[in-house]
Write a protein that binds this DNA or RNA. Structure first.
Lengths: 217, 217
DNA sequence: ACGCTTTTCCACGATACTGTTGACAGAATT
DNA sequence: AATTCTGTCAACAGTATCGTGGAAAAGCGT
């Protein structure tokens, strides 16, 4: 649904887009502010007024940099999620044992959530199935990235099932969802600098999923 | 913020409240419809118009049964969550081993999610920390129930740590969050009649958390 | 100091939602 | 048959939001 140069504002933006100077820097500033606001109020619950207020500027000024709330959201989330999906693929395809792959992937995901805090959580909270049709192209892309991560987990578990290094305690899909649940649910409790670090959480979750809680005695 | 009998509508409702007839039945119908709509669009994303449309009635008619969107939400969620919290308490206080407690609690929670589908998921999706101050009393109550469930898990794990039936792989709080994450994240993928049943999922998650994936060889 | 460009703001129209009001139709009651 | 009760509806006011237009302000190059 890209507008075909709707008179002004859009044209200004287009003009500033190619020859980018401090324009990109300001864009980034706005993104940072938006990340904070979206994290506090959720994407759908947050208004552009709130984002503008966070920076102490007028709401209309935002439209000089982003044509809509959706574009702002995309600019924020897309790149990081792409990185994350690539990371998952890389670990899944690496030539180590399924056990180690799983351990590393769990840890890496949690660390990524911590390092990019709170960016990925904003994305995680959004349920892509409910995104309006108007953004279905973008939504499909994002869902694809999501699926890549899911599939990385599923593949690893299936490999482990096949070489018998992992016990078959349920369908690979279900186990993968469980592990992803541990990781993704962290958006409700993880706060950097409070409680365990992301590394610690990642290690704990990896240990929980792989070795379990039961002691051998 | 309870209104003090705002003329009409409220008075009618008050009049119909004590002597309940088919009034309660219709209330339930509205609840059922609201559950569907809230599940599709999320609570904050859903409008009362949508709920009314689901039933093919006028939006204003809803106000004959519920004074606000919030009251509707409360009517839907409170009782079930209270039951769930009580269930968690009961299992945590039962005189069986921590291992069995954990297994049963995990399974019971997942089954409850399935049986009450999709009601509990509507609640899970709401992040209570972001509820407006206007409902802070209700919000506190609900957070309390949530905490009861959390604490049930934490206590069980700590018991297991102390009697050494569970390995100390991380703080009890962190492990509890991991398990709750597995369970709660099911709101993103669980659909009754599709894929694994809630019972199966519960068993798988309990096995995953307790015995882990790694095979002994 | 003067133009020109970049950036910001004030004001507007459009839309959507909430909660309320007073009136209306059918059933129940008298 | 008249009247109350129950449930419904169309319409209104109030608020919040989004995206746009045009004008003001700030930079900066000469």
């Amino acid at each position: 649904m890209t507008k075909k140069a709707s008179v002004i504002g859009q044209r200004r933006k287009a003009a500033s887009e190619d020859s980018s100077a401090s324009y990109q820097a300001r864009r980034k500033e706005i993104c940072e502010a938006a990340i904070q606001v979206f994290h506090r109020q959720g994407f759908s619950g947050a208004s552009l007024s709130a984002v503008a207020a966070e920076l102490g500027i007028d709401r209309a000024s935002l439209y000089y940099y982003f044509s809509s709330k959706d574009e702002l959201f995309d600019a924020i989330t897309t790149s990081v999620l792409e990185e994350n999906a690539a990371l998952a693929r890389r670990i899944a395809d690496s030539p180590i044992s399924p056990r180690r792959k799983l351990r590393e992937l769990v840890a890496a995901m949690m660390v990524s959530y911590g390092e990019n805090y709170p960016l990925l959580y904003i994305y995680i909270r959004e349920d892509l199935r409910q995104v309006a049709d108007s953004r279905s192209d973008w939504s499909k892309h994002m869902r694809g990235l999501n699926r890549q991560i899911e599939n990385a987990f599923i593949e690893i578990i299936e490999q482990g099932y096949e070489d018998r290094s992992l016990r078959r305690i349920g369908s690979a899909r279900m186990v993968a969802y469980g592990i992803l649940g541990m990781l993704n649910w962290s958006h409700r409790w993880y706060r950097p600098g409070k409680g365990e670090s992301a590394e610690e959480a990642g290690r704990t979750f990896a240990e929980l999923a792989l070795a379990g809680l039961e002691s051998p005695y």
